[in-house]
Design a protein around this nucleic acid. Sequence first.
RNA 1: GGGGCCAUCGUCUAGAGGUUAGGACACUGCCCUUUCACGGCGGUAACAGGGGUUCAAUUCCCCUUGGCCCUACCA
Length: 497
Amino acid sequence: MSRPVVTRFAPSPTGMLHIGGVRTALFCWLFARKHKGTFILRIEDTDLSRSTDDNIRIIEEGMAWCGLDWDEGPVPGDPSRWIGAHGPYRQMQRMESHYKPAVDKLIAAGQAYRCRCAKEDLDARRAAVEAKGVPFQYNRGLDKGNGCRHKNHDASEPFAVRLAMPEGTEPWLEDGAIVWTDLIKGRLAFPAESMDDWIIARTAETCEIGVPTYNFCVVVDDTGMNVSHVLRGDDHVSNTPKQIALYHAMGYEQPEFGHVPMILGKDGAKLSKRHGATSITEYQEMGFLPAAVRLALARLSWTPKVDGQAPETAEEELLTDAQMIELFDLKDIQKSPARFDMDKLSWMNQKLVQRATWQELEPHLAHFMPAAWTTKDDEWKRIAIQATQKGKSLKEMGESLAFCWERPTEFDERAVEKFMTEPVKPALRAVAEQKDYAHDALQAAFNGILEAHNLKLKDLAQALRVVLCGKPVSPPIFDTMYLLGREEVLARLERWI
RNA sequence: GGGGCCAUCGUCUAGAGGUUAGGACACUGCCCUUUCACGGCGGUAACAGGGGUUCAAUUCCCCUUGGCCCUACCA
């Protein structure tokens, strides 16, 4: 393989970016980065009904949030522009320039033909064949010879275009089968006779070539964009032989194919809405770091090997992007599907949050904070972040800082009873006297207060938490006080002393 | 129904013709502790079933079962 590596992610705009698609994109991205190749984003919008600019925008934003940057593809939010020398990267914009000439060429060469079979006719034939318990396939099996393959229809009436699939004796077949060596699944073979003359261009209103179908566009585009490695979901395996036949018919050079296993839900069924979050934006809302999503997704069906060794410690599980890129190898990808494990994502996220610097976290955190967050200075943010950085998610961090923005309106009864004891109250008054809220100063002051009142830190800290937050849970008490500031602490203390 | 793929702890997985079948997450016990957490040290837990091949199979082969994908003028 001396071709430069070019991979591509080609989602269709369904209104959300599916987590499974992101994983496929991630593999394409890792592979391209690993081999210093090119990663393309292409929009498969030949399904006219759901391809809107908004839906395309969702894909672009989702990819960007995940940190999966593309070298060629659309310019986000601007349908008229793109980056890369092989555009446009939205299929509907390639109709006249790419697809129609290709279809014409196939018809002229006799590799494809016009089909005038009406919908009703097809339905009737399908019903007749299926009545015998056999699947219907156009110009195959029981339908062999019934179609338009040899009728040489001209373009004087509306028509669909079908590819003339191999009959089984063509020399490039192996034992009558279309065969390829999949980069992940190994050798795959499909009997040519099991595949019918599929439609490459739909019937149009006029007597012209209609909108081409997905399987056709993919081949034309992958070739036109010099894609060297087609890495895509397992669900495309059975499309591959159809496409290979098209590569032959067009005289195109065939790329390598690699089919990555599906992601299943917890119950082993295909991951869908009922398993919870499937859209990438939902993970953003749940407070996950993009890096954690990348890691968790990458580790489904892929085991990185360092000198042939899989990770042996928790530490080794936590790969950086750079490490993933370096280690990524298609041969370490599983053939079997994996179930999505939210717990592991959470754990990875927690670890990455813990080890990030406060500056790295800050931009992601802003999303989970009220507007007041932006008015705070760096020192305040630093302490706020470091005080809550043990949490599992950005969302949790935001929640545990909620006391900063809202005075407690109700107080945990049991906590009040337990911690607001008579011996504590004078200590609380002493705390109110304290002016310096720097950590060390508070520490020193508390030491004195505790000794003077014969209390343990726990007694005072818990009472203060109840006072300041309404509940016996908050960040470390000195941080809690600092974040509130003396004025606010006094205000919240007032009713208790 | 047809075509294709897959099968090690609950989950992600490592593994080799002979291992106490290893790790991570989750769960759980103990310790630490300024609350909640974090952290540290332990523990429970797996080769789907049946035939072969072999001195030996969880590992190689076949079958069964189960799961998933495809089977559109969707992508």
